[in-house]
Amino acid sequence: MAPIGHHGAVLLKLRNPNRTQTVPGPVKVSVLLDRLELNRESVLLIRNGTIVAGDTTLQDDDEVEIRPVISGGAL
């Protein structure tokens, strides 16, 4: 998925199914989760291979994966 046209915004990569969305930066992680109506217990934000803390402010041109951590299958 080529991240075309997200310059000047934060690129969010969402999973299950894979898709992308942009939001204007700067934006604090905890505020972003509220705005997307995501529960902080249900996701991790990952940027450049590391977890992004809830008090981090995301800047334009950041690429962030919003990874769900809830799994549904019985093992």
Binding site: N16, E41, T50, I51, P68, G73
Partner: peptide, 20 residues
């Protein structure tokens, strides 16, 4: 689940994120 997922990220374990 958030803690086991975070453990994988910080210790460099690649895992299946997609759901069955």
């Amino acid at each position: 689940e958030r803690e086991t997922a975070a453990y994988c990220v910080v210790t460099g374990i690649d895992y299946q994120v997609d759901e069955c």
